[in-house]
Design a protein around this nucleic acid. Structure first.
Lengths: 103, 103
DNA sequence: ATTACCTTTGACAATTTAAGTCAAAATAAA
DNA sequence: TTTATTTTGACTTAAATTGTCAAAGGTAAT
């Protein structure tokens, strides 16, 4: 059960890098990166991709963590959260099948 | 595989009501309701609850449709959508267990 | 074809939410 | 204690949402 913030912080500390350095690479203020690590701000998709590249870690894995954070955050207060997620899966299946060449 | 817009439209037509009437009940312009029915706008949670009451239909069911629409919409373009949904389920499980009394 | 009604669309405005900067306070290390 | 780093909060800017309004498109009845 990984959250993106914790994951990023672990990666950054493993590489012994200060927020300043990583934030500079992402072209944002270090304050924002700190907030992302603590889950007080969301990262953008672009930022996640950049981070994966920067730390040479699997991009897909990071994207899944980031997406699932967003989804879970969006419905965490809903009693019907699980039912909604199940239903969403079916909808996604349907969309994938009905327009497999889209976009 | 129901979408909220279609569901609402069906309910409204079953009751032979014009957009105007239902929109007035929701206290919004009929243009917005039209857009909601077509999926060009999202309904708010309040609006969904009001609609369930108005049409005397199961509120939970309508909420699940509404929530799953939102979730599916948010990740429909992601290749990793299904993986993310599965991961989100686990996160939701975890959150429910760790703070079961949280409001 | 005209009238009357309902629905849909798009341009625009207002409001809300999110994303960012900056500086100061808190923390940790040297 | 001084130097680095991290965290926090007040404030600004940018972007996304949500709504209004008016015009255009459909439909059915006459």
């Amino acid at each position: 059960m990984e959250s993106l913030g914790i994951k990023i912080k672990q990666l950054r500390e493993k590489h012994m890098l200060p927020l300043r350095t990583v934030a500079a690479y992402l072209d944002i203020d270090q304050a924002i990166l700190s907030k992302i690590e603590h889950g007080h701000r969301k990262a953008s998709r672009e930022q996640v991709v950049k981070l994966a590249e920067y730390f040479k870690t699997d991009e897909n894995n990071l994207i899944v963590i980031w997406l699932s954070d967003k989804l879970a955050y969006e419905i965490q207060d809903e009693v019907l959260a699980k039912r909604a997620l199940k239903a969403a899966e079916k909808k996604v299946d349907y969309l994938k099948k009905s327009k497999p060449l889209a976009k």
